[in-house]
Design a protein around this nucleic acid. Structure first.
Lengths: 335, 335
DNA sequence: TGAGGTATTGACAGCGCTGTCATGCGCACT
DNA sequence: AGTGCGCATGACAGCGCTGTCAATACCTCA
């Protein structure tokens, strides 16, 4: 009635549990004929090894931990979907954890997953440098996604934040804009700093000055971004274009534009979002391909699961400027 | 160096492991003074019980399994976020699994989670009736969300699909519409059938006829809905209003409207979505409050975790018509 | 023919916990 | 003083697996 155990398989196959264990783990030194007999017994009984027992016997769970800022963010939604699909393909499952942008919670979540015995971790770490590094475990493979945070001894998969922002702002400049706002989340994220640097460099490259008045880096989420965007766009000398460093910030900006009933402000958002093409005008974005990022992260994790001492790699995926209309608006003349 | 075990705690506290175990599990028959000493030892050593060992000793993992159609659907994103937050609050964690709208995968995913030893399951079941019921385990608590599927012996949390659709279509009728299209995913979902029934009833209540030409129930996703919506809206006698039975279908409709450059077709979407208010015109929706639904589902699961034989309850949450503009458009006159 | 090696398999302990049952103790009561 | 009981605690097996080491059979080579 209850689940078959390794003893049932051993009895059915006519070998000891150890031999069954060997077959299960693909160890060699077992005669092919024996392997076949054991396999047949496994199939016949529909046996599945008990992960808890395996773990107790000194192993890891067939489980991957995924730690992200927020589980309902569309960007991470794509990541979760990809990671789960890939994990299931290789017989593993996925424990999810959110940090809620809180350093303490970030740490406790990671510790919990490690104690659970996950085999590996994919993390969008919250925080910076030493502090961020310190909470990442060393005993199991970890792949860092989206951010770098100065972590040198872990595999990292991220996108060309600087270049993507640079390209976007150059694009706006090429369309005649001179006063371009930057709205970002907290500068605690390396991504935001890199994108800000790309923004600044683009302005400097064009011989324009970087005006601190046009830079806002406290837009924690869309709700926080909205009033800040309103304030930024209200003055008579308001910027003629806006660069939003994340989709959530972009959403706040779009709300502000809607509220002000303005369709003449150019906008480029870093990070694509589902309904961008339905905006009026359709929103030009820097696509960071969350799917490809997640696939790459999983590839790295799978590789390191096989070979824990493989060399550390940092993968930087290219971004892609998707012109849809909002980024190609000309600057509005003075009122 | 490695994690402290129950033996370490026992030694530190000066009791046997069994007494520590009793304290850990809140069993009574332990002197308060002893409890305090054991607690102190636990804190001092920063001891955390090993879930795998617990499970092996005949228990369940402190883990909840969550099975949904798709992990990057915004609706389920909200559900995941709520479930994870609540789970972590009570010291549990969350294994996620997606069915990809595939009955076989639905079944294998559920089986896998059960084998892993999750303590409970929250499932948006795929499929119908007996078949759907058969894959749900009986040994652990299960809460069914979003759909009913004729499952009578499990807690269910869903919304007023029929009433919500009825209200939406009445709303369109009240604004003068007579030819109203229904676009839905597959009729395999009870939700879609219920919403279709609400739609039909609203028409009949108003003395209007139900025209099969205006009903489409094969819009699996936004990509499938788009051409179907285009076809539906192309003819000279096209409907003047559309009711989309899910946000994904609504997205397809919005794309079609954008493509046709029509802003005069009334639209109500069942299910809110993040950028609805930024559409032109802003999209009127039937809000199904995914957050409240997830909270209720978790409440039920927590209750049943404590009391496995509690009476089965079905919670039906109200929907709310959110008027934003698209649902209040008047019918366009004949061309 | 016998020593030594290799290939294959098995016996058994132990992972960290919980369940079962036993033990010891102090108390009320006869 | 003797009996019985309830309370607090402990000893120990067992959950299903893997790691270590031993055992057996069969070869090879001298």
């Amino acid at each position: 009635m209850s689940e078959p155990t390794i003893y049932d398989v051993a009895r059915e196959a006519g070998f000891s549990i150890k031999t069954v264990s060997r077959v299960l783990n693909g160890e060699d030194g077992v005669r092919p004929e024996t392997v076949a007999r054991v396999r047949a017994a496994i199939d016949h009984l529909d046996y599945h090894p008990n992960p808890a027992a395996r773990r107790l016997g000194g192993g890891k769970l067939p489980t991957i931990g995924l730690v992200v800022d927020s589980l309902n963010d569309p960007f991470f939604g794509e990541v979760i979907a990809v990671v789960e699909r890939r994990a299931v393909e290789m017989g593993m499952d996925v424990l999810v954890a959110s940090t809620g942008m809180d350093a303490a919670r970030n740490q406790s979540q990671i510790e919990r997953l490690v104690r659970r015995g996950v085999a590996g971790l994919i993390v969008a770490p919250f925080g910076e440098g030493q502090a961020a590094r310190a909470v990442l475990p060393d005993k199991i493979p970890v792949v860092v996604i989206d951010r770098q945070c100065g972590i040198l001894d872990k595999d990292v998969v991220r996108v060309t934040d600087h270049e993507g922002a640079h390209e976007a702002v150059c694009h706006l400049i090429a369309h005649g804009h001179r006063r371009i706002a930057f709205l970002g989340e907290t500068a605690e994220f390396s991504t935001v700093r890199d994108r800000l640097a790309g923004y600044s460099d683009a302005l400097l490259d064009a011989g324009l000055e970087v005006d601190g008045q046009l830079i806002e880096t406290t837009c924690w989420d869309a709700d926080a971004a909205y009033p800040l965007a309103l304030a930024m766009l209200a003055p008579a000398d308001a910027p003629t274009a806006v660069f939003a460093s994340t989709p959530l910030v972009g959403l706040g900006v779009l709300r502000a534009l809607k509220r002000l009933d303005r369709q003449d402000v150019a906008l480029v958002v870093f990070g694509d979002f589902p309904l961008a093409e339905l905006m009026t005008p359709p929103t030009t974005v820097v696509d960071q391909q969350p799917t490809a990022l997640a696939e790459a992260a999983f590839d790295h994790l799978a590789r390191r699961l096989e070979d824990p001492v493989a060399a550390v790699v940092e993968t930087v995926l290219p971004t892609r400027l998707v012109q849809r209309g909002s980024g190609e608006l000309p600057p509005r003349g003075p009122r």
